[in-house]
Structures are given as C-alpha cells and as structure tokens.
Simulated assay, not measured.
Amino acid sequence: MNLNRRHFLFLLGATAAGLAVENYAFAQTPLDPQLISQADPQPIGTAVLPPLPYDYNALEPYIDEETMRFHHDKHHAAYVRNLNAALDKYPKLKTKSIESLLRNLDRIPSDIRTTVRNNGGGHVNHSMFWEIMKPNGGGEPTGAIAESISNSFGNFSTFKENFNKAGGGRFGSGWVMLVLDRQDDDDDDKNNRKLKIITTPNQDTPLMTGDYPIMGNDVWEHAYYLSYRNRRGEYLEKWWNVVNWDEINKRYAQAIAVNNDDDDDDDD
C-alpha cells in the first residue's frame, strides 16, 4: 500500500468518525411504508442500515471491495446513527416516514433540521444506490423505463451521455439523479410525466423538491477514489456495467403510482 492510499484510507476513517457527531454539517430507510424491505422489521420512522444485496466484492472490477466496505459500513451506517439520534429528541417524528420528513423539512424542529436533511437524505440516497446496482448488470434498459427514457431524451445513448455529463459537472460532493417530475394538479394524464436529470449537493434528495428519484449515482469522492482517484468521468462511465435495470423499472413503477400529495398535513 503506497502512502497516498494509506493517507486516503485514514481520511475515509476520519470522515466516518466525524459523521458520528450529530450536527455534522454535510452528513437513507426506504421511501414509503410500501417500499420497506421485507427484512426490515423496524417501525416507520426508524432508520435501519440495510444489508448489501450482494457481496462486498460482487461489483468488481467496477467498484472495489474496499470502497464498498467503507461506503456501506462506515458512511451509510453513520447517516443512520445520526438520523436516529436526532429523531430520539422528538419521538413523535418517528411515526412519520423518512420520505415525509424530507418532503416537509420546514416542519422539522430547527435544532435537528440540518441533521435530518443531511443524514436522512444520505440514508435514502444510499438505500436506493445499493438496490439499483447488481453483479453482471448493465446493458441497455428494457420495459417501461426504456420507453420513458426514449420519450424523454430521444434514446438511451443521449440519456447516458447527458447523465454522465451532469455527474461530471457536479461541483464538489453530491449526486446525479434521474427523477420523475412531480404531478401537476391540473394534469389528468398520470402517465405523461417526463423524466429529467438533476444533480444535488451533498446528501440532498430530490424528495425535498417534490421530484421522485428513479436512479442515481453517488459522485462523492469516497464512492470512487480508491480505484479511480480523481478520474470521476471514468468512474461514471464504468458504473453503467453494474446498473440494475430490473430494480430501476420497479422504482419507475412506484414513481408512477406514488401519491405526491402530502400525507402529513396534521400540525405537530
């Protein structure tokens, strides 16, 4: 192990430790009750670190085992701990879904709002991230998501190019996402909503602006630096080899079906 690699591993460990501080400024449970994993027995509002749906080394050579261990066991685990610690201060919030909390951040008490935003967003983003990847993935999409991508972007090649460009252009840490636009109240055609590519800073989630995330790639350096160093563009291109289009099709169907109306209009 060379010095640069050792130094970077130290930084990864230090970052994960720093995330354990509740008010860490830049620090994901499934989105809705119906999206909760069958293996997750926890009540709604309690964040649980989901196990990886594959081995740590299953995505090699595109994402290395060491990165997966740090990314899942340290970074994601810290988001879960911090989120739960914040919600412990206001137990009533645990009766609400994580999705609802993130969609209604202005209703979160000010002393934990930033913690919920950063760590709740990190938890939701990463819970999606693990699921939309798989060994021997990739290729071109099929099914409803393929049709929607063609309708929204012209073809898959153009979509992929635009997605990579957006991810490469995200300054600093964040995510590149494919989202489904929120439903307009006066639009009677529920299936006419368009897909769009967005980027978000830090651990912000599209849920906060009413968009529904279909898929996304993590462009924080800890997601790729051990294998790709500063070559984010190469990471973005190689990542398509592990994309799980079956899961993305499921998320697209959920996005079409989800009710975008606020389910928590009650005053706290």
Results as ranks from 00 to 15, higher is better:
99 E>W: 05
109 P>T: 14
188 D>V: 12
260 N>E: 12
241 N>A: 08
205 T>S: 15
163 F>R: 01
136 N>I: 06
160 K>G: 01
158 T>N: 08
74 K>Y: 13
68 M>A: 04
19 L>N: 11
196 K>A: 08
54 Y>I: 03
41 P>D: 08
97 S>N: 02
193 R>A: 03
177 M>S: 13
157 S>E: 15
128 M>P: 03
112 I>Y: 12
212 Y>N: 06
202 N>G: 12
95 T>G: 10
251 R>F: 11
45 G>D: 10
129 F>V: 01
211 D>A: 15
19 L>S: 09
152 S>C: 10
217 N>D: 06
57 N>E: 15
147 E>K: 12
261 D>I: 09
47 A>D: 04
165 K>N: 15
7 H>M: 08
250 K>W: 01
125 N>P: 07
37 S>R: 15
52 L>S: 10
180 L>D: 04
73 D>R: 13
10 F>C: 07
56 Y>C: 00
217 N>W: 14
183 Q>W: 02
77 A>V: 02
63 I>W: 05
164 N>K: 14
99 E>Y: 11
251 R>Y: 11
266 D>M: 08
73 D>M: 08
183 Q>C: 03
172 G>V: 09
192 N>D: 12
142 T>Q: 14
9 L>N: 09
128 M>H: 11
210 G>C: 02
238 K>P: 01
65 E>M: 06
236 L>D: 06
129 F>L: 08
135 P>S: 12
265 D>K: 15
209 T>D: 09
58 A>D: 10
190 K>S: 10
180 L>H: 03
6 R>W: 02
208 M>V: 03
15 T>W: 10
177 M>N: 15
60 E>V: 00
170 R>S: 05
139 G>M: 01
209 T>C: 08
59 L>Y: 04
64 D>F: 00
219 V>L: 11
165 K>L: 13
228 Y>G: 08
179 V>E: 08
60 E>D: 00
28 Q>D: 13
222 H>P: 04
